[in-house]
Simulated assay, not measured.
Amino acid sequence: MSALRPTIGYIGAPSGDRLVGALTALVIWLSGGRPLRLRELPERGDSRLDGLILLGGLDIHPSRYRAEIEVESRFDPIRDELELAWLGVAFAREVPVMGICRGLQMLNVKAGGDLHQRLDSEITASWPNGPVGYMLFRKPVDVQPDSFLASVFGAGELKVNSLHRRAVRTVAPGFEATVCGRDGGVQAIEACEGVLRFGVQFHPELLVHRADMRRLFARFVGACRTRLATQN
């Protein structure tokens, strides 16, 4: 592995979720990157990042995708602003982006897509609510061939831990859905061309005991390293 370590900024919940933040930082480091927790808005002309990861968390306020509130929920407008600002930096500087759960949704919103505010209750009726159930829950999704995620996981069935009650409705222009649930719901999106930008509805940072999930982070950090090398 090259000694060149790209700086990978990541944004998580402002409080709590310490385990998720720690796991993310660890897997970034083990994948060859330098983790940087982002807690403040970027400075003008900020050039610290070689990659950006957005983690899971509370729902995105519907005003961010030009919608009215259909379902009352817990929102985090400060984090919305923080993530949109850093996505603006990443887009402007053509920095690779990886979105996880809420992060997928924010990437889609930033690029011009929108979200379902409520999934069909028949879909979510069998989903667990407690932390133990959340850790153990898996559902099958289908990875589309000829996609970045197919190059990581292989095309076909993949078992994942996707439980968020909101999801992508309209995929943003310039992106495509490359993983779908058996219910037809979007489980991952990827940019159609250019720099690597993708999001997954599941939580690979909680599945790092699996080689395929570690490979996902390694491929992302590798893309960030390649970008860094071209800048030097």
Rank of each mutant, 00 (worst) to 15 (best):
L26C: 13
G45A: 14
Y65K: 02
L23S: 11
T24C: 14
E40M: 07
R44G: 09
M98P: 01
Y65C: 04
L38C: 10
G51K: 05
K110R: 11
I53T: 01
G16I: 03
H116E: 14
I78E: 15
R66W: 12
P35N: 03
V109T: 00
L87Y: 05
A111H: 04
R44T: 10
A85P: 10
L104R: 05
L23N: 11
G21M: 13
G57L: 09
R37A: 15
L55K: 06
P14T: 02
G57E: 11
G21S: 10
R64G: 04
V20N: 13
K110F: 13
L84T: 04
E72I: 06
E81Y: 00
P14Q: 07
M98H: 02
L82M: 10
G112I: 06
L19D: 15
F91M: 10
G16E: 07
I69H: 03
A92I: 09
R93I: 10
E68T: 11
S73T: 12
H116Q: 14
L52V: 09
G21I: 01
G45M: 09
L58P: 12
E43P: 01
R118G: 13
E81S: 13
R18N: 15
S73G: 14
F91Y: 12
E83A: 07
A85G: 14
I8W: 02
V27S: 02
R18M: 13
G21N: 13
I8R: 00
L58M: 14
E72Q: 14
K110D: 05
A85H: 08
A90I: 02
Y10A: 10
V109K: 02
R93N: 12
G32I: 03
G88A: 13
G12Y: 12
G51A: 10
P14W: 01
